[in-house]
């Protein structure tokens, strides 16, 4: 029951397997009423003006309990402070129990219509788990999208893929930052702050000033004391430094 949406996502692709959504004769007869010509024109009048319209569409990915939502909280805080619009679709309920979780996180300086990011249009995948980062490739813009992921696998299933093959697949991607966030965070004294290393690694591609992200991290951890704030800032900076070197 949990995978219904993912199966459906596949089926959007025309003719992936051929059978799944092939319409019946009756359906075919009805489909001819669907107009196509006019709508294509409507689509063409839509120019791509990336520069004068700022939007960041992010798929956050991980396994239930890894804390992907704190990344959204921090980036959301920074963006809302700038007066941007935000929408964030979360997953609650059954799928939280050690299953794959994802959040559609959208920021824009214009009003946002859909709570879900259209497939092929996400600017980034930010993942705290390498296999999970690949699950959402259909959403990532194939030309301009960036994939930022932790390289440390979270193995709670018997048939987890071969880690070398997994790394090879990640290596084959065009725009990616693969970072051992767990190791960096542990070296800096807080294994639990791996998600801040990931956020740091994603920060060069976020179109938000780094100081503002730092300020949001401070704000988020302020009530936990100065030590926690400093560790998380160190993790954030280490992640950013790593990503900058790859550029």
């Amino acid at each position: 029951m949990r995978y219904a949406h993912i199966t459906r996502a596949y089926s959007i692709r025309p003719n992936r397997k051929g059978e799944s959504h092939s319409p019946s004769i009756n359906q075919k007869r009805r489909i001819r009423y669907a107009p196509t010509i006019k709508t294509e024109r409507a689509y063409r009048i839509r120019p791509k003006r990336k520069k004068d319209k700022m939007k960041i569409d992010i798929i956050l990915a991980g396994v239930g309990g890894q804390g992907i939502l704190s990344i959204a909280t921090i980036v959301g805080y920074a963006a809302v402070k700038r007066g941007m619009y935000m929408k964030q679709a979360e997953v609650h309920g059954m799928s939280q129990r050690g299953g794959d979780v994802q959040s559609h996180f959208r920021l824009s300086d214009h009003e946002i219509a859909s709570d879900l990011i259209p497939m092929g249009k996400a600017d980034m995948i930010i993942s705290v788990e390498p296999m999970e980062s690949l699950r959402y490739l259909p959403w990532l813009n194939p030309e301009t999208g960036w994939l930022i992921t932790n390289s440390k696998p979270f193995i709670n299933i018997p048939n987890y893929p071969d880690v070398d093959k997994l790394n090879a697949t990640l290596d084959g991607l065009k725009n990616k930052v693969v970072i051992d966030a767990d190791k960096i965070a542990t070296d800096l004294g807080s294994a639990r702050s791996a998600n801040m290393v990931i956020l740091g690694a994603a920060s060069p591609y976020l179109q938000l000033p780094f100081e503002e992200i730092e300020a949001a991290v401070r704000e988020n951890f302020a009530r936990k004391g100065e030590d926690v704030v400093n560790t998380n800032i160190a993790c954030l900076r280490a992640g950013r430094e790593f990503a900058e070197k790859l550029k």
Partner: peptide, 14 residues
């Protein structure tokens, strides 16, 4: 549509 999901990705049920 972005890239297809690589085949090595397996379901991670709750």
């Amino acid at each position: 549509y972005g890239a297809p999901v690589p085949e090595l990705v397996v379901p991670r049920p709750p």
